[in-house]
Simulated assay, not measured.
Amino acid sequence: MDRHADKDTDRHVYQAKAQHPVHGHNVDPDTTQGRRELNRLAVTATRHCLTGCAIGEVLGLVIGIAMGWPHGSSIALAVALAFVFGYSLTIIPVLRSGLALGAAIGVAFAADTVSITVMEIVDNLIMLSIPGAIDAGLDTWLFWLSLALALAVAFVATVPVNQALIRRGKGHAVVHRHHHH
């Protein structure tokens, strides 16, 4: 009986891989080419996430610091804007593919929430852990280099998250089912 269960499990795994094509390809992480494709897709998805996060982070921190807000308020605005811009960068092309607004919002939430969350946590922890970075002011190299470093570390930390999501047919794999390239 266990032998039949193993065959059924193998069949379901194979079917799952076949049913979750990513970006027009069946990504089989058990092959060298499949791992390369998975890595490429994960880096692309993370770069997409980084774009929205960076726009939101920079804008939020610049507004908060320029207004003299406390660190917590500035960071909260930066995180909120990172989600707004991150989701927007997904929603717009999905809408262009013909999906209704409500469905496009659902796709963006499914595709980006985990990735943006990880990126924002890492980015802000790094920024806060660099002595004086958040207090340095907008006209200093310390602030801007710290922010660049924080975003770079967040990118590196988020790639494996996106690999895991794509491998499971989630994250940006959801987006690629809906928009045209």
Rank of each mutant, 00 (worst) to 15 (best):
G132N: 07
L151W: 06
V156A: 15
L38H: 06
I75T: 12
A5F: 13
Q19M: 07
I55Q: 05
G86Q: 05
H23R: 05
A54L: 02
D30L: 03
V122P: 09
L81Y: 00
R35Q: 15
G24V: 11
I130N: 08
I121C: 11
E37S: 08
G98L: 11
V84L: 15
L41G: 09
R36A: 10
V94K: 04
I75F: 04
D6Y: 02
I126P: 05
Q33P: 01
K17M: 11
S129I: 04
R35K: 13
D135R: 13
I126K: 07
W69R: 15
L59W: 00
A111P: 11
P70R: 15
H12M: 15
A173F: 12
V118P: 00
F143C: 12
A152G: 15
V79R: 06
G98Q: 09
L77D: 05
L61D: 13
I91S: 02
F85P: 06
V94I: 09
V161S: 02
L99A: 14
A76G: 12
R3I: 15
Q163P: 00
H71P: 03
I92A: 11
G169F: 01
I105T: 13
H4C: 09
A78V: 01
M119H: 06
G52Y: 06
L41N: 14
A164H: 01
L59P: 01
R3P: 04
W144T: 04
E120V: 10
V13L: 12
M1R: 14
F143D: 12
A54G: 12
A100W: 06
G68Q: 15
D10V: 07
D6C: 05
M127H: 11
H71I: 10
R167S: 01
G106T: 08
F83G: 07
H48R: 08
G24A: 07
V175M: 06
H25I: 03
C53F: 00
V94S: 11
T46I: 12
L89P: 03
F85R: 08
D2H: 11
H181W: 04
V175G: 04
S115M: 02
D112A: 10
I126D: 08
L149I: 14
V174Y: 03
Y87A: 14
K7G: 07
L99F: 06
Y14C: 04
V43W: 01
R167L: 02
R167V: 00
R40E: 14
A100M: 14
H20T: 09
P160I: 02
V175S: 08
V13P: 07
P70K: 13
Y14D: 12
I121L: 14
T140S: 15
S73F: 08
A148I: 05
F143H: 12
D2C: 01
G171R: 02
A16M: 06
A157H: 12
E57R: 00
A104K: 03
I105M: 13
H4K: 12
A154T: 10
N124V: 03
G169L: 03
D30I: 01
V107N: 07
N39W: 06
L95E: 11
S115P: 09
V94C: 10
A80N: 00
H71K: 04
Q163Y: 00
N26Q: 10
S129F: 05
V94P: 10
A164D: 00
G60V: 09
